[in-house]
Design a binder for these strands. Structure first.
Lengths: 245, 245
DNA sequence: CGTTCGCTTGAGCCTTTTCAACCACTGTGG
DNA sequence: CCACAGTGGTTGAAAAGGCTCAAGCGAACG
């Protein structure tokens, strides 16, 4: 019997692509069905458990990827161990760097993560042939730059309470967005806090004790409800937005 | 006599382009001579005095530009007036946003500034035809994203002294880079502080009093020399780098 | 059942901010 | 020529926001 030794790649067949978040609004949203078929042939999937390192600083990964599910934590380290999370990647964000091997940050799975990966050479060839695709990538990068700028305002100028409120606001809006494609994230009861307190602190430029106290302050002001340690809900989104500055 | 009513645009003729910083390492570095000629026909120059506003938040400028000389200050404002500078643009950085009209920040001339501008439609057409150019733009955006990430580490995790040292280090390295193309910037005696104390503070997420105190602290540690109020020099760059964390 | 991990709380401390005063320099108008 | 206001820079003292340190709690896990 001819056993078909299909590589793992094959899960990313055109049929699978059709319902993929990335296909709908990510890097391959600009492609025709036929082009996606071509792309899918050079794609392969990877999975990571929560907490697992995806990329280490100064790694030279041979792949470029789009996040198809889960949340990826992107962080930088100072020599003495101080850490700053510089971004969270939600589907259909991309991870890695085109036209350059080196990567100057850490990437870690914050939740269970699924990536749709492409070998650099393949992907770059694809980019050259499809200007819509490289345009999409450029626009996405510029959006990322804007959100980085917003975060710089937070880190440079906001108070601890505003920072925590801003993070919650971010999670709400991003989760809502994800709901359009995905199910889950918020099961109507509330929103998930994908990060533990220490990670929130590293994202907000605070200590985890301060995060805890400000979370409590927001709770006391009835701006949020805390349902357990990893879930919260928001009675009045406008109030949260206002608290976020 | 047929008076040639050359528009101001014409200053950006191919001959002018040849020695332009942008031509050498900026947006048009990927083009052939002929292509630059085409580009130059759709370009026009603008000048701004120090302190002049180039773009206001939520403006919808009809142009996209590359900085050909001077320093541009990019900043964001909170409703109550708190300000955060999110970046400095040196030649040959670009200013504006392709494929989108709206701009979510302020841009102000920190020094005398010269821009090489393109109308959106023209430039985007050019981009579509020249994949090397849009690749260059993508790489540049990704570099900007990296530097934004580095700045987030500064804002989130560094001490006041480290922040000030980091800014000085940035100015030294960027000015040195500019020296390769440009003259000036450092007249051998030292480096120019393009920003006043308050602007440094807004860039570093500090108050201007703190900036002054940390500048003095670095001076007392012999890490920098202060030559007047807008100039400094660095006896040992490695020491400065170390102080920057 | 003890250990570990993540989370919470309190007390005191320290870095940075706030507030206020003052100086140096520049340009303006009488 | 001088008085004057305006701008940018500097300094000190007091206040405060967030950090450090230390202790304790509950849930998960081997």
């Amino acid at each position: 019997m001819h056993v078909k030794t299909m590589p793992a790649d094959d899960r990313q067949a055109p049929e699978g692509c059709r319902f993929c978040v990335i296909r709908q609004s990510g890097i391959c949203s600009a492609l025709t069905g036929e082009e996606v078929t071509r792309l899918s042939r050079i794609a392969h999937h990877r999975q990571y458990k929560a907490g697992q390192t995806i990329l280490s600083c100064d790694d030279k990964p041979d792949f470029f990827a789009a996040v198809s599910s889960g949340v990826v934590k992107v962080s930088k380290l100072l020599l003495d161990g101080r850490q700053q999370i510089v971004g969270l990647l939600f589907p259909p964000d991309f991870l890695g760097r085109v036209f350059s091997r080196q990567i100057p940050y850490f990437a870690e799975a914050a939740t269970h993560v699924e990536l749709c990966c492409f070998r650099h050479a393949d992907f770059e060839r694809m980019l050259k042939d499809h200007s819509e695709m490289s345009q999409h990538l450029l626009e996405h990068s510029l959006d990322k730059l804007d959100t980085a700028h917003d975060w710089m305002v937070l880190l440079g100028r906001k108070t601890a309470e505003e920072r925590v409120a801003s993070l919650l606001y971010l999670l709400v809006t991003r989760s809502k967005l994800a709901l359009v494609h995905d199910h889950g994230a918020s099961r109507d009861t509330g929103f998930e806090l994908h990060l533990k307190r220490e990670e929130m602190a590293d994202f907000l430029g605070l200590t985890y004790e301060t995060v805890i106290r400000q979370l409590k302050a927001l709770y006391k002001k009835d701006i949020i409800c805390l349902n357990g340690r990893r879930e919260f809900s928001v009675p009045d989104l406008a109030a949260l937005a206002k608290a976020a500055g």
